[in-house]
Nucleic acid binder design. Structure first.
Lengths: 413, 413
DNA sequence: CAACATAGTTTTTGGCCTGAATTATTATTG
DNA sequence: CAATAATAATTCAGGCCAAAAACTATGTTG
């Protein structure tokens, strides 16, 4: 039987941008001042396109609440009218801690409300997976340490951000799997809150590094860019439309497991042809023994092996060089694929492995550009940053800082 | 000399989400009604979280303006209180035309304000690049045709959307390069407006198809998904956060030119190892001659060649099968790389080539899943749609419809 | 010092949305 | 068959936010 009055099924996306709720004007003003470091009311007016009256009202409110303050020094050179008064964030209002957990050592950073690093701490630790409780004990020591060195003025920490490698569910605050933790499907956030009574923000370490670039680094002025990390594995973070993109299913973005060779080298994930299988520590190390003419029983630590391999390559050894060269070529393929699929304005390459400069040599970049279409447009920029773990930790503060800011502004109204 | 008072350089993203300006409540209400096909005021209240008073005011305004109307039929089965009155878009308010330009034939669709297809038209055309003027003449014929068959009620067309293959700058309305046009760096939009005096929205054809899925197809309920097209080339469109992602530099996303093999098969872009070089028409055709044991002088049209190759493969010929099988495996690699880099909720594969079912066979999908990490999560869904050119044209209407809607709502206030 | 230029404040006004009270329209129920 | 409950929609007063415009503040320039 024909349904004579079937309702139309409509058209257009069924989902609205629910998560991307508009930021309040207050928040935009605050964030503009913090982003600029210092800004006059007129700067704010022009940047946000609001009226002078709003600027006065909103800034007055925040000055009153102690979030902003006027700067005394007036570095105005030449100007006719009334001199502008710069505003800045009051740094001591809140403090947050960012922590990067790693194999050999953890790092922590305490950041004030203006984003300045006020104290840092590191903690040597035992390698290998450990129980969550042990990890939280180490976290406690780090927090204690960084709090102490920051002094009393900033002792009231408002939130903590933690980044660690593995599969991390940012939303739920859980860690389905991490090389650092003995347990699987670890409810990290809940355990943390029970122990510390502090808001906690967890994320994948590659995302943390990406946030570091977005908040403090080369990504600040870009709306769309990618960050690649080459360490034990190969990680990636993506910023799309000025915000971190986490994927639809909340999985990390796994550049390391994109395929660059059908039936290629064996990866530790059990599959063949992953980029990581050509680029990561273990991949280089397993060929190093051959190139260095080591006997099977002469085992060394992977790091020592890599260092030796690098020296060998630098001194002109063909076999050693070819290992790095192949890794570099596959890296170029991986980067080229990112450019083709995502067309970022910038790619940032970061990580310890960058010290083996074969991997970020001009060769690799020019090979990447050869592998990508570029119809007369400016080719995608590539930068390399060989930053230490403290920068990762700083990225972790960004997550916490953003949440604390949201809250501080929200309770103004 | 030390600068004793260097201003802080701040932290946080420097760019705000300028483009993602908040939609007005009016617009959200309208779009919800259109997306649902029909919706009561109460539906709107719940979906958008607004107050009852707002719903009344906003809908009344739009009903008054003739954009919405109440539906007479009340299909309420069981309910206690006052029966709800459904609202729907008045379809005849505006009409838009979407056009897909292709090698052998163009297609056009006329869509009403509710997104219903009201008329279609196709136009056989000569293959090969042609001057812009000739192309616009063909567009004129199509517009005339589709307008005529839509009847007088919808003759007032408010905007046109056009999709064509090649490099298209949506923002500027120019076409740096297209296989369909003789000129390079064609100012298509300006020429169009001079000739037709109508708003025009240009885009890459892969983006058009993606919009078709977002507005009318399987993507409506997904916030993040990818669309792959396999025809002459291999194209891709990406929806991220409920909106079409166009890349930072406005280049198309070129899945076809991602590298799946270092130093692999030669692509028509001049590079080696592009996915397209294993998957596109010309790639299959150039191996077909060998498999079919043709003499060099026995040249056939590429299409005939492919059809013959397919029959041959179906009848059990090993050489023919291996061509498709290899193409399928590389397609699996390309899809796996998308999954690893973007983690979409859904991949939609579309295009004529899908008739050669080797390419979307279960084999390919299972190979793709074998190639991707999945830590216990639901694997990325894959759908295949073998849709005709009219669907592409319909996608083109989405772009125009969206712009016309914005305008219609804006001038309400 | 007057004229001007720029920065910031105050006040008024209007848009937009919420919340509460009210009206409208139906089913249920003794 | 009222009385009651339930749901939908409207009306209206009030609050928040931001723009517009008039005004005040504070400097430079000639």
């Amino acid at each position: 039987m024909l349904d004579t009055q079937s309702p139309p099924n409509g058209c257009g996306p069924l989902l609205t941008l629910g998560t991307a709720q508009t930021k309040s004007m207050r928040q935009q003003v605050f964030e503009h001042v913090r982003a600029a470091g210092r800004a006059t009311r007129t700067d704010v007016i022009q940047a946000l396109g609001i009226s002078a009256g709003s600027a006065t009202a909103l800034t007055a409110e925040m000055i009153n609440a102690g979030l902003l303050r006027e700067v005394e020094s007036i570095p105005r050179e030449t100007g006719r009218g009334r001199p502008a008064v710069a505003l800045e964030v009051v740094p001591e209002t809140h403090a947050v801690i960012g922590i990067k957990l790693s194999e050999k050592m953890h790092s922590a950073v305490l950041t004030d409300f203006a984003g300045n690093t006020r104290a840092t701490a590191v903690l040597e630790t035992s390698t290998g997976p450990k129980p969550l409780d042990d990890m939280l004990a180490e976290v406690a020591a780090l927090i204690q340490d960084v709090r102490d060195s920051a002094g009393t003025q900033l002792s009231a920490v408002a939130a903590v951000g933690i980044g660690l490698s593995g599969i991390v569910d940012h939303q739920a605050g859980t860690v389905p799997w991490s090389p650092l933790l003995a347990e699987r499907n670890c409810d990290f956030a809940t355990a943390f809150r029970e122990k510390f009574d502090l808001p906690i923000h967890l994320d994948n370490d590659a995302n943390m590094l990406t946030l570091a670039e977005l908040w403090f680094g080369a990504g600040r002025a870009k709306s769309d860019f990618a960050v690649i990390t080459i360490e034990q594995g190969v990680g990636m973070g993506l910023v799309i439309g000025n915000r971190l993109y986490r994927g639809a299913r909340g999985m990390g973005l796994e550049l390391g497991h994109t395929k660059v060779q059908l039936d290629g080298a064996l990866c530790r994930c059990g599959r063949r042809g992953c980029l990581e299988a050509y680029l990561a520590d273990y991949a280089l190390a397993r060929e190093a023994a051959t190139a260095l003419h080591l006997q099977p029983h002469e085992s060394q630590s992977p790091n020592a092996l890599l260092a030796a391999l690098f020296t060998q390559a630098k001194s002109g050894d063909e076999a050693a060089q070819t290992i790095f060269r192949r890794a570099g070529r596959y890296l170029a393929v991986g980067l080229a694929n990112i450019v083709q699929l995502f067309d970022p304005a910038l790619i940032i390459i970061s990580g310890e492995r960058m010290q083996y400069d074969y991997l970020y040599a001009e060769e690799v970049l020019s090979e990447m550009h050869r592998l990508t279409l570029n119809d007369g447009r400016t080719p995608c920029a590539v930068e390399t940053h060989a930053w230490g773990d403290l920068v990762w930790a700083r990225g972790a503060t960004a997550l916490a800082l953003s949440a604390v800011t949201d809250q501080a502004i929200a309770q103004l109204a």
